[in-house]
Design a protein around this nucleic acid. Structure first.
Lengths: 339, 339
DNA sequence: TTGTAGGCGTTATCAT
DNA sequence: ATGATAACGCCTACAA
């Protein structure tokens, strides 16, 4: 039991709580002698400040909240690692919550964090999220908020993303340059900004290369952009459009599903159909054929988001004005065997 | 800003804080009229109790801590999901920390959680952890502790694991039954209980089947049992022991490394060398050949660990005696293409 | 039925 | 150099 309090130390030493507190916090107006006595006894009793009391006094929790769609996810795990690393540096703790891609959960998790009075919130939106009142609630509580990856463009806060549109544009341009002409796109669901942007990048790349955009070559992966989606849509596209020679997938997990299907039915990758993923999950480098993909720097996104959030928390604490940032981190094409 | 306090409500209504508090908590000794007035105003002002004050008063944080070796990890992500699900049910929040497989970090993270005064701690030990004073610190703080997966047998607390020794025994017996005779084992590092137990299961299965145990067929994966380890050790074993016909890997990630190497050098799986993994990571079902493995129920382990922890937290709160449990969850062999 | 008073443990202000 | 006092916001004996 470590329930030593300032009071106990004060009593044992026959001095006031105030003096004990000052000694421990290195105030100058305490004599060396008392200070040392206090520090020694504190160490001996293994004193640590009661964080509940400190929170109440200082009105900060030294804790931030993180809401992500799902944890079992290569990209988000990497984001979290980046966040934890930054938090650790600053002696902050991180409470992690999942929205499970549900708008209702997302709202609930926000309430939990707000009630807990975390000092700031990091979020990537769920696929269902199409309105943003709940985010404005955060801002109205005056709690710093940083959005990353799946963001709301219209909400007034800092954001960290990649340039999804450009990344997709480059990706599809790369396919075209390699000679692929009939390129299907397996897109994400309709709401998330990043799936919209990747789709727009795809479309623009086709147009800029004089390939007529054909909406029937676009398949939607609306079940969390997962493996099954890729598998099932691959089956469909092969039936409906045997003429395609490449598929650009919204994310690696979908691409892995595609590859699995193509492998099963004996369609050669990339000679018959090329597959290009997005995100560079670890798994992509160990499947056969190894997946070509776009590197999306999850760890860096996490670090940057957290670092901006902590800056804003500090600015707020010092009553300084906050200037919101919109950061876009660089991506690159990773060419492997599937293209 | 949502800084409504009991005091403000009391002032606006011209009554005492006590009465407001009682009304909101449904005490019987408040007149219907005042109670309703209070509740109405509270809703209107969007009152929520200040959790800092509640924590200080009640001495509980409604928060638990979780320390795992690493987050970017199929098994641990699944564990976390199980934990979050149980926590959510009980309105508990979860602070997640990584040890990065370092003993020093593990100690530090424990201190952080203890200082934060979490109501309980869930842990899976790092590969470096060979002494357990830091765990006893937790217990001496009277903070409930549940260990899972990588546990310390000698520490007096509840534990949730699989029966690693039996699972490995069954796994190797299965290989033998399929006709494999020269079976190498890529084991984990020397300290973690589960890597010891898997090794012992391997050895026992050989002996029970009249295969002489050959220590030179055991390779250690001491770099976090990762992909590279599997790859490098596969290279070694093929050189040093070309006669082997199967490899039993301590975990899927290692197995995936093995498969990658064997594929690269054109060794046929399973006809020349069979590969059996452990843990059933998602990835294992999508690589080629699909990996045979042992299913280790991460989600269930997380749920069970959390549920035991919450039970202990409640018992402690009610000053009831706690009986520590040691739970072993069932595993099963998943036969795919690599064996 | 309502309110007073004290305490949870820390910190900050203001006297001494 | 030291300490008394109040305050953070909530809860709960114990009056009234």
């Amino acid at each position: 039991m470590n329930n030593t309090t300032l009071k106990q130390i004060a009593n044992q030493l026959g001095i006031s709580i105030t003096t004990v507190s000052k000694s421990l916090k290195g105030y100058s107006d305490v004599s060396e002698k008392t200070k040392n006595a206090v520090i020694e006894l504190a160490n001996q009793l293994n004193y640590t400040p009661n964080s509940f009391a400190v929170n109440l006094r200082t009105k900060e929790s030294k804790t931030i909240g993180l809401i992500i769609p799902t944890l079992v996810h290569d990209f988000f795990s990497n984001v979290i690692q980046g966040i934890l690393e930054e938090a650790e540096k600053r002696d902050y703790l991180v409470i992690i919550l999942q929205s499970n891609e549900k708008f209702e959960f997302e709202k609930k998790q926000i309430d939990l964090l707000l009630n807990k009075r975390v000092d700031g919130i990091l979020m990537s939106l769920s696929n269902e999220t199409g309105e943003f009142e709940h985010l404005k609630t955060i801002l109205s509580h005056n709690t710093p908020l940083v959005l990353f990856d799946k963001i709301a463009k219209l909400v007034n806060c800092s954001k960290v993303t990649i340039n999804d549109r450009k990344a997709a544009y480059d990706a599809v341009s790369y396919l075209i340059k390699k000679g692929y002409k009939k390129i299907a796109h397996f897109r994400g669901s309709y709401l998330p900004q990043n799936s919209i942007d990747r789709f727009l990048g795809y479309k623009k790349a086709l147009e800029d290369n004089n390939i007529i955009y054909d909406s029937s070559l676009v398949y939607v992966c609306d079940n969390n952009m997962d493996f099954e989606n890729g598998y099932e849509n691959a089956k469909k596209v092969v039936n409906e459009h045997p003429e395609i020679d490449a598929i650009f997938a919204v994310t690696d997990l979908v691409a892995v599903g595609i590859i699995k299907y193509l492998n099963e039915v004996g369609i050669a990758i990339p000679t018959q159909i090329a597959v290009l993923g997005f995100s560079n999950w670890f798994m992509s480098s160990v499947i056969s054929p190894k997946l070509s993909t776009i590197d999306q720097p999850g760890f860096k996104i996490g670090r940057k988001s957290a670092s901006i959030l902590f800056d804003e928390i500090n600015l707020k604490k010092n009553n300084l004005p906050i200037v919101f940032q919109s950061i876009e981190l660089a991506t690159s094409i990773i060419e492997r065997q599937s293209t």
